[in-house]
Design a protein around this nucleic acid. Structure first.
Length: 332
DNA sequence: GACGCGTGGAG
DNA sequence: TCTCCAAGCGT
């Protein structure tokens, strides 16, 4: 008797029960799109509240396209990778200019800003049933283990090989559900650290499990050394308002975000008292910030005063949020 | 191909 | 406390 296919095993497992995530209950390409962008390098748990708030605020591409960049960034603030939000808005504008309907084919979807191979395959398969296998971190891990393939997943050759395997596995009758099932398996069973092989529907045909190599796959060679940085953020408040500066439009990262000044950015400031410290990591940069209460005598060109209420309406950096929490001006 | 980009959770 | 990394993309 022929062994059941990967797709059959996987879909049977998936249909038996999976996490109830809000974007699973829709085929609206706009909602699928927003969820896929938010999920890039971001855990589902972190995405859920942002997804729901974002869609209430921008329920369709037209609403998103007509919003200001600051409004969109404010809704994204805290989620990270802010280029995603800028690209999302730009893509919505492009969609609205070209008729207002979300593209239905892989190629035009792939051509939108912020959409790469993964996201195009995810949207095309989930929203439109197109036969494209997704290749994300979950799929790479599952394929590496089932095939017991120790290729470096940062290399293009390995990724092409893995993509071919996922394409072989793909269930042509429901590519979208198959893709989600494969990613769900990676997210909940075929875990990076501690794979739950005992409950895995693919364990019978998993070569890494047979060889005992699951925990060391997939192989990723490159590694960036962390850099430790110490700095100070100044909290200047006066009459219930706090002094903030805005990053330049051209800044490489977090452009247009409002943040607290460092001492060198506010030369006239006088430190009154150190209120505390906190840590924050941005990619491989590990910051330790001291939070200092400070005062200024003169007016501060390029700065603006914000109330706590106003801060909810602007893109506010997470370092500023953490520092203002240390200063007990906002609640974390 | 290698980097840079945010954040918070898990172990 | 520290490391690793989670539904990637653009340069």
């Amino acid at each position: 008797m022929k062994a059941p296919s990967v797709a059959r095993l996987l879909l049977a497992w998936y249909r038996k029960g999976h996490r109830d995530l809000p974007w699973r209950s829709t085929k609206d390409p706009y909602r699928i799109w927003v969820s896929e962008i938010m999920l890039q390098q971001t855990r589902a748990q972190a995405v859920i509240p942002y997804y729901e708030r974002f869609l209430r605020r921008f329920p369709n591409p037209q609403a998103l396209a007509s919003a200001s960049e600051d409004e969109v960034l404010a809704a994204w603030s805290g989620l990270g990778y802010y280029a995603r939000a800028r690209n999302l808005r730009r893509a919505a504008q492009r969609i609205c200019v070209t008729g207002g309907d979300f593209p239905r084919e892989y190629e035009p979807i792939r051509a939108l800003p912020g959409i790469g191979d993964y996201t195009a395959a995810a949207i095309a398969s989930i929203a439109f049933g197109a036969r494209h296998a997704v290749l994300d971190g979950n799929v790479l891990r599952v394929v590496a283990r089932v095939e017991n393939d120790s290729g470096d997943i940062a290399s293009a050759r390995t990724r092409e090989r893995f993509r071919a395997v996922a394409g072989e596995w793909l269930d042509p009758s429901d590519p979208g559900e198959f893709n989600q099932a494969l990613m769900e398996l990676g997210a909940t069973v075929c875990l990076a650290k501690n794979p739950l092989c005992l409950v895995c529907p693919l364990s019978e045909r998993c070569r890494a499990r047979a060889e005992g190599t699951a925990h060391q796959l997939p192989v990723k060679l490159r590694k960036v050394e962390p850099v430790h940085i110490q700095s100070t953020l100044l909290v200047v408040h006066r009459g219930g308002r706090v002094l903030l500066r805005q990053r330049e439009r051209e800044a490489r990262r977090m452009a247009r975000f409002w943040e607290l000044p460092a001492p060198e950015q506010l030369p006239g400031a006088r430190v009154v008292e150190i209120l505390g410290t906190f840590r924050h990591t941005i990619t491989h940069h590990r910051y330790t910030f001291a939070v200092a209460q400070a005062s200024v005598s003169a007016r501060c060109a390029g700065f603006r005063w914000f109330t706590v209420r106003q801060m909810r309406e602007i893109p506010l950096s997470t370092t500023a949020r953490k520092a203002l929490a240390v200063a007990k001006i906002i609640v974390p």
